[in-house]
């Protein structure tokens, strides 16, 4: 199948105070139609920038993005605006992303009218009813005339999702879409996204810093772990969670507390060599994780840049040189073995 999105060697830089900051470097990622893929990582890892590029809101500074197998540069102006509609972004903050001066009905009708998605005002009304029902805001009659401030955070996020669906997208980028809502109702939002995906054949790019949430949401999909602007590991969620390969992924998984007292108190911790996250303006040579990596191999990791390739004995890909050479990390890290605190 042709991937719906393919990023080939995508770079992205921002200029701040006359300094060029490489926010994304050499991102290669292909996303299949109807797939769920999670981008995870800590702040500054580039997951939001990647999401914005996928949603067509940012241009890559280098490399190229293909949509349905065609480079985005080959799309004509008209085709591009159609493309924009097919790729939608749902923002993190439903308090900031909905105009407080407009009713929910207005918020949903603007894109319907602007893009002539339906005929006539009766059609608009019918479609709004449909959309609100789709996101479980029922009965729609109770919602359409309300303003955002009259809704709870979870309801607002449902409105945001309904708005993204007005233009009948094929792909949705959900950037921390549930992190502002209470834990008790996150699951219902995620379940709704799952149902929408099944029903509308959507592809979902889910961006989160919460690994447990990523695991739950993308259980049947894939996870890409990002660090300092690069993907360091990618594979099926079940493989990445059960047998993480890249030392950074291992460190993240080991660091997450679990909602289970005995389990969380007996987790094996990976102690990093340093707590300091390097600045994007000063990314370490070789593997960017080497100054913190407990399995650092001097003369290798600090000199050669690892690429994302298959790891012997593992189902997923990771950018780690010792792993790619087939070395077991524990052995490679004899010197640092004492850092394994249990």
């Amino acid at each position: 199948m042709t991937p719906i999105i393919e990023l080939r060697g995508v770079h992205r830089t921002f200029v701040k105070d006359r300094q060029t900051i490489p926010v994304l470097q050499d991102i290669n990622l292909s996303i299949e139609p109807n797939e769920i893929i999670c981008l995870v990582g800590e702040s500054g890892c580039g997951k939001t920038t990647t999401g914005k590029i996928i949603a067509g809101l940012l241009e890559p500074s280098g490399g190229e993005m293909l949509v349905e197998g065609r480079p985005i540069s080959s799309y004509s102006g008209k085709e591009r605006s159609a493309l924009r509609r097919q790729l939608q972004l749902v923002h993190q903050d439903p308090f900031a992303s909905l105009n407080p001066a407009h009713t929910i009905g207005d918020i949903l009708s603007f894109p319907l009218k602007r893009h002539k998605m339906v005929e006539g005002s009766a059609g608009v009304r019918r479609r709004i009813w449909e959309l609100l029902t789709m996101v479980d805001l029922t009965p729609p009659g109770d919602i359409v005339n309300k303003y955002p401030h009259q809704l709870s955070g979870g309801q607002r996020q449902r409105v945001s999702i309904a708005r993204s669906l007005t233009v009948q997208p094929r792909l949705i980028v959900a950037d921390e879409a549930v992190s502002m809502v209470d834990v008790s109702i996150r699951i219902s939002l995620l379940k709704m996204l799952h149902e929408l995906r099944d029903r509308l054949g959507l592809t979902i790019v889910f961006i989160t810093h919460d690994l447990a949430l990523a695991k739950y949401f993308a259980w049947e999909g894939r996870i890409a772990v990002m660090y300092l602007g690069r993907i360091v590991e990618i594979g099926r969620t079940q493989d990445v969670i059960a047998a993480p390969q890249h030392p950074y992924t291992r460190a993240l998984l080991a660091a997450v507390p679990e909602a289970d007292p005995e389990l969380t108190r007996h987790k094996h911790m990976l102690r990093l060599r340093s707590d300091d996250i390097p600045k994007l303006t000063d990314i370490p040579p070789g593997c960017a994780f080497h100054p913190r990596c407990p399995f650092f191999v001097p003369g290798l990791c600090d000199e050669t840049l690892p690429h994302l390739t298959a790891i012997p004995g593992a189902a997923q890909h990771a950018a780690c040189l010792p792993l790619q050479r087939g070395e077991a990390l524990q052995e490679a890290a004899k010197a640092a073995a004492s850092g394994y605190a249990g």
Binding site: Y216, I241, L253, E258
Partner: peptide
């Protein structure tokens, strides 16, 4: 507790 995902 039934609403909280667990990693492992």
């Amino acid at each position: 507790l039934n609403a909280a995902p667990r990693l492992s």
